[in-house]
Design a protein around this nucleic acid. Structure first.
Lengths: 186, 186
DNA sequence: ATAAAGATACCGTCTGGACGGTTTGTCAAG
DNA sequence: CTTGACAAACCGTCCAGACGGTATCTTTAT
């Protein structure tokens, strides 16, 4: 830290580090702990360095959002590949990802952050766009009332995970997922 | 404002006003806008006045939470009265309230706030308690997998309202509600 | 090949303002 | 005349962002 001028320059790595640290901070200490000072310090970068990569705080949050969505998209795409029934395929992938999101260690790191993002009007709008785009993209295969219902339920489960309410035991959870997937096929 | 000493003293009214203003601010400008200064000013009260009613900011948020839960409870109770089928009665009331929550002007005012509350660990825990208590209270009539599913879906719809995503048209929405209620009776 | 000329990736400090909270004072009601 | 309901001024802290600098990369001109 003291003299970090001459260390190897690795902008992409530093950028990534900043995002990770921001996510971790929000998880461990709430969104209030995500300050430019805290993030930069925990990432071993000066505040000026942070502001070089992200010109302001909103840009940092935007970056987090991008990362989050990209991850989500990748997970969904992956889940869709192993499914050869057209009808409701997207919905099933959505279900899979939402239900898995609490288990994976990575997911945990993004959850608290997510809520914070949705509290920010700007990011709320961006999420809205994402939903609209997807709904449009899969209108042909996933717009049935049952699919809609299933996805809403997935959101509910995701929310419950986020809040640590409900505490489902594993078999109940598995059964629920199964039922919802069945719905998506009808 | 300038000379508010001699205005009629109406503590309960002022307290209510403060809560309403805080809710409205969070709705219109995000949780970040809910500061002691902003709330007190918008409520036509000095900051000292605010802090007289709520000794600190957390107390203010707690107050909002209390109000929110009380309203929710009342709405649910009301919805349960008109339902004479025991099985899934709570779930149907829960559905009714969640689905109605976007329509009523009142509900709108509390939505964004809610998310913010859930970002606060302390309030998150309180919500968790609420869920646990209710789940326990209605274990005999509303613990079937289908009821659980229905309530999760309700949460999803509520979340969608909160985020203005999804934009359901009225008939689809009504149909969804109907389907979920049917589930709760099985 | 190399050196000059930027461009990019940082560092360290400073500042203006916001924000939560305290304190002291004032008025009105009981 | 005491207590509750406020007002108004103030304080310490924190924080976002600006700024001016420095070191390392890349490109270009020679």
């Amino acid at each position: 830290m003291a003299n970090a001028y001459q260390r190897k320059k690795q902008p992409e790595r530093v950028r990534q580090q900043l995002l990770e640290v921001a996510a971790r901070l929000s998880l461990e200490q709430g969104i209030g702990a995500v300050t430019l000072d805290a993030v930069s310090q925990a990432a071993g970068v000066s505040k000026g360095g942070l502001l070089h990569h992200f010109p302001n705080k909103l840009a940092l949050l935007d970056g987090l959002f991008d990362e989050l969505v990209a991850r989500f998209d990748r997970a969904i795409e992956e889940a869709m590949e192993g499914d050869d029934v057209e009808r409701g395929r997207f919905t099933r992938a959505y279900l899979t990802v939402c239900f898995a999101f609490d288990a994976e260690a990575e997911g945990k790191g993004w959850q608290v952050l997510t809520i914070a993002l949705l509290a920010e009007p700007h990011l709320k709008a961006r999420w809205r766009d994402w939903v609209a785009r997807r709904a449009d993209e899969f209108a042909a295969t996933d717009s049935s009332p049952n699919c809609l219902l299933a996805r809403f339920a997935a959101d509910g489960v995701w929310l419950a995970d986020l809040l640590d309410s409900h505490e489902l035991d594993a078999p109940t959870r598995a059964l629920l997922l199964q039922n919802l997937k069945a719905l998506s096929r009808q």
